[in-house]
Design a protein around this nucleic acid. Structure first.
Lengths: 221, 221, 221, 221
DNA sequence: AATGAATGAGACTTCATTCAT
DNA sequence: TATGAATGAAGTCTCATTCAT
């Protein structure tokens, strides 16, 4: 019994042991906050450590460098996105436009409520300094999201639901307002006493516009 | 003779001494390059000085700090924008949509061809670290540009040319694809063997869409 | 079975519990390897622990600090030397030169075959940082070895076997090639494609030379 | 003492520019002291800077890293050696043994009087951590010195002055006492109240011994 | 007796900024 | 006006050492 390792792990915590498996995630969460607030270069590991409630050295037990911690932050923000995308993609048959609507509202919600909305800005800002990370993000998030939308558009066009639009350009035009909103919120929002960006309203208008742009016979009435 | 380094040092001053007024602009130009390539924090004044053909110390004759140099770079990228905006605003009477078209194509050209297209990304990336700069940019560039578009929309609506759209949201939806293009070009473009972003094509599709969205009676035909 | 790691952990204790006395020696052995390979400062306790098959913390159950572990390593390399010395010293009466021969060949064998040959280099390298250790080594190893040789020389001289050489200097001249060989092997050996140092051959020549130098009437034939 | 720049250095020269070309050498000299006293790893650049009378950052104006500074120190100690070697080699015709004598006394003088005598110990101590440096030293110093001695021996043998000794082994046996002396002086000298190593006396005995070993017909009288 | 997660002092290194020339 | 050698604060990263389990 003596030489036993740590973590009985489950039974009644008499003292409340430190949940060690949670450590990396706690650190990533703290790092996300600091990176989002300061940007990569201006983020100090000292502050990350302080917010995670650990010492500076502890960071290096889990991440070999600031770069890798940064990448871990970005990656950790990707998983939810991917799952989100899967969920959306699963919404099978029927008309396409309602799927598009749900999709846009979902992303709008994410943009409006989560702090991970600042991730795209981080990635774009540091793309030049982390080409591999930019490539990773591009491949795993952007391309996938674009592909999803492109499929949806093509299905709608094939089924006669959508007008025969230029798929690639339209995908970008669909995404742009959401991306801009995400970036906006973490850059200019609340400046100068302006009202904060009303993402839901923006998206509803966007959806209305898309209805006119995409649907056959829409717009005339 | 113009872009030459420093110190003619000896021979008879050619009547007009080395245009000392050009110095700051040369420095700002060099700084813009470096900031755009590296981001604020990763930009080294050593490299700025080298590209400007001056010594590090000389930078401090014109700019009191790296921060101020950065701000000068951003501000210097604003002037052309403002003039651009004036020009556009001057396009007086007649139908509004063609004005909008010209405007979008003009910006698209800027985005596609100038390196200043990376400025918005810089500003957004450093907004958290330079709140006053973000505010300045927001006030002097964004608000002005948004105001311009809003006026145009209102005039079009009042004249019966445009449908009664939600002005604020529509302004953002008009701008978003251009902003996204600007950011995109300096972040992801050329990654993974993808074709580079075709900004003109994107803008033409955007204009087509806006025609359906904005113009009364458009779209049914 | 012996060199195994820790933690039999569960099955019936095989009568004699894991020879706990062996632990410190296993650690010292592992530490010797690492110190020899890396030098004191560059040696990491992490690696020592890994090679000893224990955890880092365990080291501190046996040695209060890295310094003390280092000293233990050096001391552990002294014991065999001392025993060696005793053995040599025990080789009593008769002519002295054959004793010297055996002695040199014995040391040469140690230098050529054991990794402890790197100890002198370690001690010399760290003498400045561990004055007490250097003093200890000097007192317990060097002085003793020198004394042994000095006695032998004096006996030989007294018995008319050796010429009346300067004892102190001759002792050093006897030792130097062996010491140099030990250091050489752990520093330059195998560099640049050179053949490795042939210690036995070197010692045989050394013995030949010493025969001419020490023995009365030697050399003329 | 306040925010002043760099050292006016002291008295009168009221303008007297900073001898900037001397800087690197001053730094190397200071670094040699610290490396010799502490060893590579335990040497602190802070202390090097302090002894050189410059700031820490200044070191990096001249040497890109601690490693490179170390290598520069070693290399700087090689030049004199090489020149020394050239001088020795230039000692042309005539009998060989006197040349050998002069050579040994010269090196003995270096060992006894200069602080660079500690360089071999440094190189040997760090050979494992700086293989390229060890190879460099081996190639540029050791091999050259060995070659010089080997030539001398061969010439002496060919001329009938020397007995037909094994050249390689003999070279090492000639060098060993000097190398050991150099190492000794920076490791054990003065320990325990012993008298410091009398290098000249040692070398004279060594020369006497070599006379018996090398010269034809020597020793019998 | 043993573990290994956690610590934090300390080292190297960078770079914006200064100032004598 | 211009230089560039020099500075030193600050940041990243390492690793000997500790301690709750």
């Amino acid at each position: 019994m003596p030489g036993r390792g740590p973590r009985p792990e489950s039974e009644s915590p008499p003292r409340w042991r430190r949940r060690k498996d949670a450590r990396p995630q706690e650190i990533v969460a703290a790092a996300m906050d600091v990176f989002v607030e300061r940007g990569f270069a201006a983020a100090k590991l000292e502050e990350v450590a302080a917010r995670a409630g650990v010492s500076k050295g502890t960071l290096y037990l889990y991440f070999p460098s600031k770069d890798e911690l940064f990448k871990a932050v970005i990656r950790s923000a990707i998983l939810p996105n991917l799952e989100q995308a899967e969920t959306l993609a699963a919404a099978g048959g029927g008309p396409c436009f309602p799927v598009l609507e749900r999709l846009l509202r979902m992303v709008a919600h994410l943009v409006a409520t989560t702090r991970a909305a600042a991730i795209p800005r981080l990635v774009m800002a540091e793309a030049g300094n982390f080409p591999d990370l930019a490539a990773f993000y591009h491949r795993e998030v952007i391309r996938r999201a674009f592909g999803l939308l492109a499929s949806l558009l093509r299905r709608g066009i094939a089924g006669g639901e959508f007008r025969p639009v230029t798929v690639d350009a339209t995908v970008r035009l669909i995404v742009a307002p959401l991306l801009m909103s995400a970036v906006w919120r973490s850059s200019f929002d609340g400046l100068d006493g302006d009202a904060p960006l009303d993402v839901p309203a923006l998206v509803e208008t966007h959806i209305d516009n898309l209805r006119r742009v995409l649907l056959r016979g829409a717009g005339e009435k």
